[in-house]
Each structure stands twice: as structure tokens, then as C-alpha cells.
């Protein structure tokens, strides 16, 4: 882990809450409102960390330690995300499998701490979360397989170095499909509008929010920060696909990459403003649709 590799991780850690700010600002702009300041999430996290803690009567140790494990796994996942053409600090053959399963760990313990409270809302959220996550996994794996076949590399950093999105040529169609599928995955995993609404107050309709219904104070701070990093990871993965290899210096390449990530946050904001929520029954169809997209991409690489 040379000095150079630490920079992308630091940028990731610092900038990830900013994404929420951008998304809310875009939504406000669409609605003609001024919207909350860009750094609102930072203020929330600092405030929460300093507040007192209220535990539910039914909760046990799992509820207290769960969010810590969620944050850990998400931090380690961040280590493996490549930063533009610069390789990720920790990259080896098949690291995307570990990335997927680290996100699995975070999901596992979010659900456990939700169930620990014993409230029916949290149970409902957990049950939905588990169902949609199970259907989302194949999309991610097939996407990685598509990239591996397309580039011949088996590690994320290797794939990102080889892949480039030229406007023309058969290959890019497959990559376009992959980007669309992974965009859907991003929206599902990070509870954005078409699948789940982060700002709703109606517990019955929530998926992610309801699982952290009873966490307050420092725990909630940790969870918010972890979800910020998670959004950063997904946007970074998609950004890596889109950013062409400019063969310029590391700094410019990095700057372009960060701009791309922020751009994706804007896109998410736009999508949230223009689309309503998909009915709960239709969400599995959306996820299976995403997998189908990647599968067609695979078939195209075979044909090509």
C-alpha cells in the first residue's frame, strides 16, 4: 500500500456524504426549492455522534455491535474499488467476489440488528431487504463476468484499466447494457426512489429506512456514514466503466474520475425527481430485468 494508493481511499471517505447533498440539491432544484445545504449530511453525522443513546428494551448486544460491523465491511469494500486508471489498494484475481460478499456481510448484520428490536416494522423491512438483495446478487456477478470476458482480466482494477467506452463498435453495446443494469442495482441497493424512498415517513412503504428505525445517536451516525460510502462504491464502479483512459497524468485522471462520480450523483438526483416509486410487487421484475440486461450483454460478447 504505497502512499499514492491511500489518496483515493481518503477522497472516498471524505467525499461520500457529499453525494447525498448533491442528490437532495438536484431534487430541490427540480422542485423549485432552495433545498438543504450540500454539506447537510456532514452536519447530521457530527450532530448524531455527539448525542446520547436510546436502546430499545428488547434489544441485545447485536443491536449495539451490528452497525459497527456494517461500517467495517463497507470500509473494506471501499479498499477494493479502483480509482480511475489507478489500481485499488487491494486488488487480486476475483476480488469482485469478495466485494459482493463484503456488501453481503453489511446487509446480513443490518438485517440482524433490525430483527433484534423485535418490532413488526423492522421485521417487514428486513424481509423485503433480504428478498430484493437475493435477486440483485446475480446481476452484480454476471456483470463482473461480462467485464472479465470482455477484458480478459480477473481483478477489478485490471478490468477497469482495459475497458473503455468508445462510441462505436459492438463491444460498447455490451458495456452500455452493463452500465444500465448496474445503475438499477445502485438504485436498489442504496434505497433510491424508483425502488425505495429514503425520505418517506410511512413505515409500511420503507425498505432500508425502516431497518434503522430504532437506531439513534452515534449508531445512526455510523449507519448514515456507511450508506454514504456504499453509494460512493457503487457510483465509483459505474464511473470506472464510463471514464475513458485519457493516458494523462494521475492527477488529471483522478480529477476526471471524481467529477464522473459526482456526475452520477446528479444523474441519480434527476432520476429521483422525474420518476415515481415502482409498486412493491413489481420490484422483483425490475431486478430480474436487470439480470436479463446483463445476460443479453453476455450473449452479445459471445456473438461478437
Amino acid at each position: 500500500m504505497s502512499w499514492m494508493n491511500a489518496v483515493p481511499v481518503l477522497i472516498g471517505l471524505i467525499l461520500s456524504p457529499l453525494l447525498f447533498g448533491i442528490i437532495n440539491r438536484v431534487k430541490a432544484w427540480f422542485a423549485g426549492r432552495n433545498g438543504s445545504p450540500l454539506l447537510q449530511t456532514y452536519f447530521d453525522v457530527f450532530k448524531l455522534v455527539r448525542k446520547g443513546m436510546v436502546y430499545g428494551t428488547t434489544t441485545s448486544l447485536i443491536f449495539q455491535l451490528g452497525p459497527a460491523l456494517v461500517l467495517t465491511s463497507v470500509l473494506l469494500a471501499l479498499l477494493m474499488v479502483p480509482f480511475g486508471t489507478m489500481a485499488a489498494p487491494l486488488s487480486f484475481k476475483g476480488d469482485f467476489i469478495l466485494l459482493a460478499y463484503l456488501l453481503g456481510v453489511s446487509r446480513f448484520f443490518t438485517v440482524l440488528s433490525a430483527l433484534d428490536t423485535g418490532s413488526s416494522f423492522e421485521g417487514m423491512g428486513a424481509s423485503r431487504e433480504v428478498q430484493f438483495a437475493a435477486l440483485g446478487e446475480p446481476t452484480f456477478m454476471l456483470g463482473a463476468l461480462l467485464m472479465a470476458i470482455y477484458t480478459g482480466e480477473m481483478s477489478l482494477s485490471g478490468m477497469v484499466r482495459e475497458i473503455h467506452f468508445e462510441a462505436v463498435g459492438g463491444q460498447s453495446a455490451a458495456v452500455a447494457l452493463l452500465v444500465a443494469a448496474w445503475m438499477m442495482l445502485l438504485l436498489t441497493e442504496n434505497s433510491r426512489i424508483p425502488v425505495d424512498d429514503p425520505n418517506t415517513h410511512l413505515e409500511l412503504t420503507m425498505i432500508h429506512e425502516v431497518m434503522v428505525l430504532d437506531t439513534g445517536g452515534p449508531l445512526l451516525g455510523m449507519v448514515t456514514y456507511a450508506s454514504g460510502i456504499k453509494l460512493w462504491i457503487f457510483s465509483a464502479l459505474i464511473a470506472n466503466l464510463l471514464v475513458p483512459n485519457l493516458h494523462a497524468g494521475a492527477v488529471t485522471q483522478g480529477a476526471v474520475f471524481v467529477a464522473a462520480v459526482l456526475l452520477i450523483a446528479v444523474v441519480v438526483g434527476v432520476v429521483e425527481s422525474i420518476m415515481g416509486r415502482v409498486r412493491m410487487r413489481q420490484i422483483p421484475k425490475v431486478l430480474v430485468g436487470a439480470t436479463a440486461l446483463v445476460a443479453t450483454g453476455l450473449i452479445m460478447t459471445l456473438a461478437g
Binding site: S60, L115, E137, L142
Partner: peptide, 21 residues
């Protein structure tokens, strides 16, 4: 991948429902 996802669902169910709440 599907089995992995469902396994996570199945084991959170058992661990969550039997021991927690």
C-alpha cells in the same frame, strides 16, 4: 449468486427469529 443471496436470507431468518426479538 442466487444461492448465496437466498442462503443469507435463510440464515438471517433463523438467527434473527430464533435468538433475537
Amino acid at each position: 449468486a442466487l444461492i448465496g443471496g437466498l442462503a443469507a436470507a435463510s440464515f438471517t431468518r433463523v438467527a434473527g427469529m430464533v435468538f433475537l426479538g
